[in-house]
Simulated scan of single mutants.
Amino acid sequence: MTKPEIKMPIRTARLADALTTAIVVLDAQDKLLYINSAGEQFWDVSYGVLLKQGFAPFFEQNPILAKAVAEARLTEQVVTLREAELVSIHGQTHIADCAITPSPDISGADILLELADIERHMRITRDAQLHAMQISTRQLVRGLAHELKNPLGGLQGAAQLLERELPNADLREFTQIILNESSRLKNLIDRMLGPNNRPQMQRINIHEPLEQVRRLLSIEAEETLLQEPLQWHFDFDPSIPDVLADRDQLIQVLLNLSRNALQAMSENDTNNPTLRFKTRVLRRFTIHQTLHRLVLRIDVENNGPPVPDTLVESLFLPMVSGRAHGSGLGLSIAQTIAEQHQGLIEFKQKPGAVRFSLILPLSQSLPGQDTQGQHHQETPP
């Protein structure tokens, strides 16, 4: 539905549509007079829907905002909210700074809402801090792993020489234990060092690796101790363009995330175990201080137990695991692969939903190709 170009000057409305701050104008009965594009995105709703239902449902969903609006009307003064947690009609949460202006100089208007979504800035700051910590820890672990490889190689060589000299075959059982255990340590060290191969980048349809992961996990799910059959939910955007990535490495990342979810649900006897894959394109997203015009987000979500708060900040560090028999390397390796693709993995959880999101730029290009891809409107998560 086309927005009306009355109520406020056309030029003003066009300028408001260019803002990243959400603008909402209401009359005295909380009916919508105007909302800009950022406002539709913030509240995850279209102008047409808001025009029919009014803004009352949002006030019911967000009593802190309703109280501030009532105060602004009563005092006829501007009321501000800092770092308010607001929820859209579909349950999407935003952290925002809000300004509520009563009786704005707009025809028929009673309230002007200005909402600046600061969650992005908070996320960027938090991601930068975590990224710096991950890099430092990874460098420390890699340095330690390199130092361990040399004496471990000497140990293996000595055990092999000793095995040749032993006169009794029964004694070779002990040298075999040394060789087997040292090989296991060497494999662990190689995993600690992370992927050695540079990504073999090519254009791929992201839904093909997701289907491959589903096939692999479906087989594994039949062999786990899940109380009930694993349920799959898919929410794919078919308009997503091909992404520039290493197919095998993406499968490894998505398999690590999905397998962790499967193991967590199995070990905790989750009722109605469910794994959900979701793909969306987001617009103007910052990854490690770089603003990307378009990014791809792949959600791997499960309804298993929440991650303990004590582990949330260190999830992607090497050797950190919440499972009794976990190596703590799967998420660290997955994050390393994501970073090799100029992307990252995010983690969020709420009751009944644990979500890992792989985020990759869509604006990359192969050598000699134009870096300007097709334009896609962001689909709210």
Rank of each mutant, 00 (worst) to 15 (best):
L315C: 04
N272T: 12
D235R: 13
R276P: 00
P305D: 01
L226G: 03
Q202V: 11
D309S: 11
Q231A: 06
L254R: 08
I219H: 10
N302T: 03
Q202W: 08
V213H: 00
L244V: 11
G304W: 00
L250Y: 00
N303C: 04
N268E: 01
L262Q: 03
N303L: 04
D237C: 14
A264Y: 01
I219Q: 11
L291F: 05
N303V: 02
N260Y: 04
D235F: 08
S239E: 09
S266L: 07
R323I: 07
F316N: 07
Q200H: 15
L250W: 02
N256V: 08
R198N: 15
R276L: 15
Q252D: 13
H233G: 02
L254I: 09
R247E: 15
V281S: 06
V243W: 10
D269S: 13
S321G: 11
I298F: 03
S258F: 04
I287H: 12
A245S: 03
P238M: 12
R284C: 05
R283K: 14
L282P: 00
Q231M: 07
Q200D: 15
H288Q: 13
E313W: 03
F277C: 05
L244S: 07
I298T: 10
V213N: 04
T286H: 11
P229K: 12
L317E: 15
S218L: 09
E211H: 06
N303E: 03
Q249Y: 12
Q212G: 01
V213T: 06
E211I: 02
L294A: 14
R259V: 00
P306A: 03
E301L: 02
W232M: 06
P195V: 15
L317D: 12
V300A: 02
L291P: 06
I219D: 08
P318T: 02
H288S: 14
P229G: 13
P318A: 04
T310G: 05
D246Q: 07
T310L: 10
E222S: 10
P238W: 10
D248L: 09
H233L: 13
Q200T: 14
R323H: 15
L275Q: 04
S314V: 10
E267L: 06
R203E: 14
L250K: 01
R280M: 05
T286W: 08
E267W: 02
N205P: 00
R247T: 12
I204S: 03
P229Y: 10
P305A: 02
T286A: 14
